[in-house]
Design a binder for these strands. Structure first.
Lengths: 152, 152
DNA sequence: TTTTTAGTTCTGCAATAAGAGAACTAAAAA
DNA sequence: TTTTTAGTTCTCTTATTGCAGAACTAAAAA
């Protein structure tokens, strides 16, 4: 049993939850992740989470496993204690940014392929499409540079 | 009535459609946008789109209006012709990048707010959270810089 | 005035997502 | 050995999405 959340914390969990829903998480996953970002105790058990968010066991289990798969959270165990202690994987956002940049490659390949297969008649349209693929290449390279330059 | 699509074009529309679905568009919207990127004719009417993609009128109407709202497409009319001619708004991608960067501000404000309200006891966690908000500030500023530097 | 055009809106259905609650399971404790 | 713990999995319900098809509408054409 965990320390109860303050009203302010509940508010923040709700706000952060909504934002993360808009970024693709299910309501329950979004709130679990928010809870692990906002609660005073950094490591919470299954039941801490269930009670704090008033979720069913299935919703809690699915949300946790979803976040584990996404590597948004991790867990550790303590000697002589069967429970898992879940925590937000905050330190891993740089990799996430990097991944999203590298993810652009496939998208841009597709755009280049579209351009290659386009009729040569639509000169202006093709020029715009070319500029877009150039821009994405540029943006990707520069972004990776600035990420690498961070605190170095 | 428009020129029929080649098999290659159908393939590309499907691939691009799937990618855009994963970026939040509905199946129909994703395909309409893909069609307007891939078809030889750059400007297509409602019925061109409906026939090319074999959609119902309602699906076509909703997809088009959805894309118009998102400013992913635009339309023009021709003198003495009541139809609207829809086209992909390719040239406006930089603005979209810019918008998504500016959109980070709200997210980061929320994170800063969370940090401000956290217990001071979780020293390492708070330090990580602080580093994240610093990074987002940095990344946002640098990204805007590189976007502005594009072809200038 | 009637008909056609270029859509929009409404109705209904099928598929999917999200979560509650209960049944289940495997390991540890009693 | 039985019970408890720490979850997982299954079943059911409800809500939402996405679309087809039909009914509708407003402007233009005939």
């Amino acid at each position: 049993m965990e320390k109860k959340l303050t009203d302010k914390q509940r508010d923040l969990i709700e706000s952060f939850g909504v934002v993360q829903e808009s970024m693709g998480l299910s309501p329950a996953s979004a709130r679990v992740n928010a809870l692990l970002t906002i609660a005073d105790t950094v490591e919470l058990t299954f039941d801490d989470i269930r009670e704090a968010l008033e979720l069913s066991k299935s919703a809690t289990s699915n949300a946790i496993n979803n976040l584990l798969m996404l590597k948004r959270i991790g867990y550790k165990t303590k000697p002589g204690d069967r429970k898992r202690y879940f925590y937000s994987k905050m330190g891993q956002w740089q990799d996430a940014f990097m991944d999203s940049m590298n993810g652009l490659t496939g998208y841009n390949e597709l755009l280049k392929n579209i351009l290659k297969n386009r009729t040569k008649d639509s000169i202006e349209f093709n020029a715009q499409l070319k500029e877009l693929t150039d821009f994405i290449d540029y943006y990707q390279k520069e972004s990776i540079k600035i990420i690498k330059n961070w605190k170095k």
